[in-house]
């Protein structure tokens, strides 16, 4: 009986990458969950309308600062995984960073989309919590094996970005740069970024409600 990638059967080897997924999901989604809703609630969004700023520019302006904040969180996570918990990093750092930046964008996109769609801080906070935290814990394959879930539930997990990021992190940290795992998973995340971006732009058109 041999356990590849984790000879000593250290549970923190799979727990730490899974926790990074949780932390990044929450940081990403909750940082942006309130920003658009707050502007709508306070009525400052209307003032933005009368400026020549285009809605894409508003969205970018709302994304970039939180993206940088998310990156700081990400670096803290990677450093503590490596030096505090001594999880081996068998893949390369650029691949890890690229996958994680993509995921931060997905998480920020979820927050922005919810925030622009519901335009209410109380509901936005509830929805983004619901959409991210427990699903990332229970349905991402971090704790429970995806293959053993009933088909209907497995179908739901395909819609969850956390699922792809868990596969990416577990592989990049423990197995190395296995391109046949990394490429499809990153492609899914990239597709989600595009969808979320389009969706958010559609609900933030400059118009009065």
């Amino acid at each position: 009986m041999r356990l590849w990638f984790n000879d000593a059967n250290e549970s923190r080897y799979f727990l730490v990458p899974g926790l990074i997924v949780l932390v990044m999901t929450l940081i990403g989604a909750l940082l942006t969950a309130m920003v658009m809703a707050r502007e709508w609630e306070r009525g400052t969004f209307e003032s933005l309308f009368v400026t020549p700023v285009r809605s894409e520019e508003i969205l970018l302006g709302k994304t970039i600062p939180y993206f940088l904040l998310g990156l700081i969180g990400l670096l803290l996570c990677i450093v503590s995984a490596k030096y505090l918990f001594h999880v081996p990093l068998r893949g390369t750092l650029p691949v890890l960073l690229a996958a994680s930046m993509l995921y931060v964008l997905v998480a920020l996109g979820i927050g922005l989309l919810i925030s622009s769609a519901v335009k209410n801080q109380l509901i936005a906070s509830q929805l983004s919590m619901l959409a991210t935290f427990m699903p990332a814990l229970m349905l991402s394959g971090f704790l429970f094996d995806l293959r053993s879930m009933p088909t209907a539930i497995r179908v739901i997990t395909f819609a969850l970005p956390a699922r792809y990021y868990v596969a990416l992190l577990q592989t990049i940290f423990l197995a190395g740069n296995v391109w046949s795992v990394i490429v499809p998973n990153m492609a899914m995340l990239a597709g989600m970024v595009a969808l979320l971006g389009l969706g958010t732009r559609a609900v933030t058109r400059k118009q009065l409600v």
Binding site: M1, R2, L3, W4, F5, N6, D7, N9, E10, S11, Y13, F14, G141, F142, L143, D145, Q170, T171, L174, A175
Partner: peptide, 21 residues
């Protein structure tokens, strides 16, 4: 009998190997 398991999720791997046992 050698069992080589994917330890990326060591919990799942350990459960599966206990089934083999």
């Amino acid at each position: 009998v050698q069992v080589i398991a994917d330890g990326r999720n060591s919990n799942t791997a350990a459960t599966a190997s206990s089934y083999v046992t």
